[in-house]
């Protein structure tokens, strides 16, 4: 399953890169990095269905909660 997902994503990336008229390395790099990110995102939940969603702004939320204590409506 994981292999299949990776294969599909890689195939799409290769196909689209092949369609490009020109391939400046900056563009290709950003494209590949984003694609790697997308693939990782697709693979992670397959490997571990119970994976928790990261909350990069979680600390802010806690901070606000502490600040608002009672008035915190949310």
């Amino acid at each position: 399953m994981v292999g299949l997902v990776i294969l599909v994503y890689a195939a799409v990336a290769a196909f689209e890169l092949w369609l490009w008229a020109e391939r400046p390395w900056q563009k290709v790099l950003l494209y590949l990095v984003l694609f790697a990110g997308a693939t990782t995102l697709a693979v992670l939940p397959v490997l571990n269905p119970d994976l928790k969603v990261p909350e990069p702004l979680g600390f802010l939320e806690k901070l606000l909660k502490r600040l608002w204590q009672k008035g915190g409506s949310v």
Binding site: A13, W20, L30, Y31, L34, F35, L41, P45
Partner: peptide
């Protein structure tokens, strides 16, 4: 936003990876 942040003027080339990231993103988040 992504392309601008990295200094490109054309944005169309990153649409595909971002859209493909949305599929797992929507299922996972």
């Amino acid at each position: 936003c992504v392309t601008y942040a990295f200094g490109f003027s054309d944005y169309r080339f990153v649409v595909t990876p971002l859209a493909l990231a949305v599929i797992p993103g929507s299922q996972w988040l």
